[in-house]
């Protein structure tokens, strides 16, 4: 599979694309307060690849949802693409995600009522882009699904579905790509192929990659690792 070298890198608006300061998340239980994330701080530069690793229940997914503005922290701040998330409302955060963020999920999360092409077009259409279709066709061709544009998710294999999900994540050339266990639902060979594709696209587009995984080999391919344990950053 070849990657088109003519694709432009996203504009270098800020050198630090993601900045997390003293981020905490606590939830009140009937008898005590549970701290899921405890004063985590770090920053990620544009184009960096970062793996967030840790055992189950260490707070990885909570950290991901706070960084992407899907949830609000108890304390601390996240700046995404130069914008403090706490200053935005729910719709403002959605717009910011639409403009700067791509997602890849463990269970693909393609919309079953839309074809592969329509799934890839969706984020660009939501952002109001006029050239959604040619770009979606183009990237689907590059992930090897040029012949499967009109197929529905249920007609595709797991690996193919994840390739559509990658195409959807990269089509809008996001500044940051959040990937949550992207190979968790795939067998080793298919998972390997998807990982190659993910890193290939990422290198070419120059996207900042934030990867949540418990797979140390996958994490090892990232330039940097952030390890969580009991809600605290330990590495």
């Amino acid at each position: 599979m070849t990657i088109d070298p003519s694709i432009q890198l996203p504009p270098a608006a800020v050198a630090t694309v993601l900045e997390v300061s003293r981020l905490s998340k606590r939830v009140a239980l009937p008898d005590r307060v549970l701290t899921i994330l405890d004063a985590v701080s770090f920053s990620i530069a544009r184009g960096e690849t970062v793996a967030i690793v840790g055992a189950s229940g260490s707070g990885k997914s909570t950290l991901l949802s706070l960084m992407a503005g899907l949830d609000t922290p108890t304390e601390g701040e996240v700046r995404l693409a130069g914008q403090a998330l706490s200053t935005l409302d729910e719709d403002g955060r959605a717009r910011l995600r639409g403009e700067h963020v791509g997602f890849v999920f463990q269970s693909f999360q393609l919309l079953p009522s839309l074809t592969a092409l329509e799934n890839v077009m969706l984020p660009m259409e939501l952002a109001g882009a006029d050239d959604a279709e040619p770009r979606a066709r183009d990237i689907l061709g590059r992930v090897g699904l040029g012949e499967r544009l009109g197929h529905y998710p249920r007609q595709l294999s797991g690996g193919e579905q994840q390739r559509v999900a990658l195409a959807r994540a990269f089509v809008a050339r996001p500044g940051v790509l959040f990937a949550d266990e992207p190979t968790g639902n795939l067998d080793t060979t298919t998972g390997q192929a998807v990982v190659e594709l993910l890193y290939g696209l990422n290198r070419e587009i120059g996207t900042t990659l934030v990867l949540v995984t418990h797979d140390e080999r996958l994490a090892a391919r990232c330039a940097r690792r952030i390890r969580l344990a009991g809600g605290k950053m330990v590495e």
Binding site: A68, L70, E90, D91, A94, R95, R97, G98, E99, V101, F103, F105, Q109, L111, P112, L122, P123, L126, A127, R168
Partner: peptide, 19 residues
């Protein structure tokens, strides 16, 4: 359940409430 999940995915992909 499906609708909740799909609505969530659309929100993650940048859809606002109006959309």
């Amino acid at each position: 359940d499906e609708r909740l999940l799909e609505g969530g995915v659309m929100r993650v992909l940048g859809a606002n409430r109006r959309q």
